[in-house]
């Protein structure tokens, strides 16, 4: 739930990077931290184990600009990807405004991706949040690795789409980020489905990191408009 502070003229929103362990969630935040101007970001806080595995969360506040005289301040969080830490992961999702699912493109991590995606849906449902009705984007990370699965396979497994319930939304909506593809379309069986926007990334080089952040932040602000 975003918070608008009229006294300090700030719109504060919470974005959570979710996904399997070692998928690159922390790397996304580290790249943002390294690239944005120091005056527009706060400290990068990492609650990690001695071996740099996220234990509780990473946190980075960034200002993305001013709109209608209000500073748009985004609080970026990662969750611990390891299955073991579900209690911590769930805590971080509380009052989230937007989700980035960071998938690991390596074929051998497909099962871990699926497990994490299911876990995300389950944890959101426990808070009464419907992932299909909130700002949500998917990032396929590690696209540079030789064992990366084709994007079509990742899409089919992790972002196959959900059925559109509102008749008003049942119209072809082009994917603004991928020419020739649609976010909402009618499939062969006649159903209308909607998919989350997706991005390819090599977070360790920064490729796709800001595209992902921009997309989810924009969706979060548009949800307020």
């Amino acid at each position: 739930m975003s918070m608008i502070n009229y006294a300090s003229r700030e719109i504060n929103c919470k974005i959570v990077y979710y996904g399997p362990g070692l998928g690159g969630k922390t790397t996304n935040l580290e790249h943002v931290y390294g690239k944005v101007k120091p005056e527009t970001r706060g400290k990068l806080i990492s609650l990690a184990t001695e071996t740099e595995r996220t234990l509780f969360f990473d946190f980075l506040p960034v200002d993305l600009g001013t709109i209608r005289g209000f500073k748009t301040r985004f609080h970026l969080y990662t969750v611990p990807g390891q299955v073991y830490y579900n209690a911590s992961r769930k805590l971080i999702l509380k009052n989230v405004d937007g989700i980035v699912f960071v998938g690991d493109s390596q074929t051998e991590r497909m099962e871990a991706n699926l497990e994490s995606m299911q876990n995300l849906y389950d944890n959101m449902a426990e808070y009464g949040y419907d992932l299909t009705k909130m700002p949500f984007v998917v990032q396929y990370n590690k696209r540079d690795l030789p064992n990366a699965a084709p994007v079509a396979d990742l899409q089919a497994a992790l972002n196959p789409g959900w059925e559109v319930e509102e008749p008003a939304k049942c119209r072809v909506t082009p994917d603004p980020y991928h020419a020739g593809e649609n976010l909402v379309e009618q499939i062969a069986t006649g159903e209308w489905v909607e998919r989350a926007p997706f991005f390819e990334a090599v977070a360790v080089n920064g490729d796709g990191v800001f595209d992902t952040l921009k997309a989810v932040s924009k969706l979060v602000l548009k949800a307020l408009a």
Partner: peptide
């Protein structure tokens, strides 16, 4: 009030990014 604050601000949001 937060529902009103950004009402109709789609273009400004696009410009922000």
């Amino acid at each position: 009030q937060q529902e009103k604050l950004l009402h109709g601000a789609e273009q400004e949001i696009d410009d922000l990014f």
